[in-house]
Amino acid sequence: MVRLPLTPEQLAAGRRLGGRLRAARGARTLAEVAGEAGISPETLRKIEAGRMATPAFATVAALAQVLALSLDELAELTLTAPGEEAVRSAG
């Protein structure tokens, strides 16, 4: 299966997600947080740098738990650009 290139919006959302995770990590080492989340330090480094704009849900969920972040907050970062109202489905 061929993966389509990411849109500029998806890339921007990945950068917002990475920035939030990096801020939440604070003074903790990248290796420490990655180990607790069960992912490689290189994976966490790529996510924080915005080079992995669409990480797997399980990865995001593990990081959210380790960093005491709400999945709702992280989802909000990926659904909206700064200053925009959240996109919500009626469903």
Rank of each mutant, 00 (worst) to 15 (best):
43 T>S: 11
19 G>H: 03
30 L>W: 11
54 T>L: 08
17 L>Y: 03
23 A>K: 09
35 G>S: 13
62 A>N: 00
34 A>E: 03
1 M>V: 05
78 T>R: 12
24 A>Q: 03
74 L>H: 09
48 E>S: 03
58 A>R: 01
38 G>N: 08
44 L>Y: 14
44 L>R: 02
78 T>Q: 13
1 M>C: 02
11 L>V: 12
60 V>C: 06
1 M>A: 02
2 V>W: 00
53 A>R: 07
25 R>G: 13
48 E>N: 03
70 S>Q: 02
51 R>P: 01
22 R>Y: 01
54 T>S: 10
68 A>L: 02
29 T>R: 10
67 L>D: 03
27 A>S: 08
75 A>E: 09
22 R>Q: 06
36 E>A: 12
90 A>N: 10
75 A>I: 14
32 E>K: 04
27 A>Q: 05
1 M>E: 04
26 G>D: 06
24 A>H: 07
16 R>S: 12
40 S>N: 10
86 A>D: 08
49 A>C: 09
22 R>K: 10
80 T>E: 15
46 K>W: 11
70 S>M: 02
41 P>F: 11
52 M>C: 12
26 G>T: 05
51 R>E: 07
45 R>M: 11
65 Q>L: 13
83 G>K: 15
88 R>F: 07
16 R>L: 12
91 G>P: 10
35 G>E: 13
19 G>T: 02
82 P>D: 14
42 E>D: 14
68 A>Q: 06
41 P>L: 13
81 A>R: 15
81 A>L: 15
86 A>N: 07
54 T>N: 10
67 L>G: 04
34 A>G: 05
20 R>F: 12
79 L>M: 08
34 A>V: 13
65 Q>P: 01
2 V>K: 03
20 R>M: 10
13 A>R: 11
27 A>T: 07
26 G>A: 06
47 I>T: 10
72 D>F: 01
81 A>T: 15
10 Q>Y: 00
64 A>K: 02
57 F>P: 05
52 M>I: 11
44 L>A: 06
85 E>T: 15
80 T>S: 15
39 I>T: 06
63 L>G: 02
83 G>F: 15
21 L>K: 13
31 A>C: 12
38 G>P: 09
3 R>I: 12
19 G>I: 05
61 A>E: 04
44 L>E: 13
22 R>G: 02
55 P>V: 03
18 G>K: 08
46 K>V: 08
